[in-house]
Amino acid sequence: MNDMWTGPTVRLRGVESADWEHFRDLARHSVDARNADTVEPPRSDEAFRAWTAERAGRSPGGDAFLLAVETTAEGAFAGAVTVGETDRRAGRFRTGIEIAREHRGRGLATEATLLLLTYMFAEQRMNKCEVEVYAFNDASLALYRKAGFTEEGRLRQHEFFAGRHHDVVLLGITAEEHWAAHDRPPVR
């Protein structure tokens, strides 16, 4: 079987309503939440159930979507990857990923990112993927560099949290750069 959503260690799948506890657990670590986006006030379990159920009920694909990252060996929820800010005219999109603490350091984020890039470049006719990473987030910077992204700039003192302003690093990868390092998916 050849499944473009499955790699050696991860599988990307749709979000299920039952994933609500996993998303709640991802949000419980303030440092992790900040690295992924922003720290929000605590939500109730019911709010997480509703948020996850709403995402589970969405039609797949489109210009913005969220996929669960699951380990292939255990079938365990390992995190989530997003696509957003899609500009079909220009052929570019943004992505982001969050991996649960217990699954970090195993290359899951890199593999999941590469699976997503292959889909977006091969099936959605996108030409470029962009990411924004806080300058202090060394793990995410290393992940995207390993996946072939190039630093394109820095927004100085761009975001405010933890009592001060922080730089944001802009990185990007083009379809041509991705295909130079990775095989296109087979037709048959």
Rank of each mutant, 00 (worst) to 15 (best):
A135L: 00
R125A: 14
T71Q: 05
R101I: 05
R94Y: 09
Y119N: 07
E176D: 15
D45H: 09
A142N: 07
F121E: 00
E151Y: 09
V31D: 14
N2T: 04
A53H: 08
R184K: 12
T118S: 14
V15A: 04
T72H: 10
L155P: 03
F160H: 13
M126S: 05
R164C: 09
T82Y: 07
V81Y: 00
P60R: 13
G14W: 02
G148H: 02
A73R: 10
L117S: 09
H158M: 07
C129F: 07
H165L: 12
F161M: 06
D138G: 04
F149S: 02
P42V: 12
E152Q: 14
V83P: 00
T95L: 06
D63F: 00
L117G: 09
E177P: 02
V168P: 06
E152C: 07
F93N: 01
F121S: 03
D138V: 06
N2W: 06
F65L: 04
N127P: 05
A36K: 03
S30H: 15
A36Y: 13
R43P: 03
K146Q: 12
H22R: 09
P42E: 03
H158S: 08
D138I: 11
F136H: 13
T71I: 01
A36W: 09
R94H: 14
E159Q: 14
A68W: 04
L171T: 01
E111F: 08
D37I: 08
H182T: 04
R88V: 05
G75E: 00
R106Y: 04
E151S: 05
L143Y: 02
T9V: 14
T174E: 01
E176T: 10
Y119L: 01
G14T: 13
T9M: 10
V81K: 05
G79M: 04
R164P: 01
D32L: 12
R13M: 08
M1I: 07
A109K: 02
M4A: 07
G153F: 03
M4N: 13
V31N: 06
R104S: 01
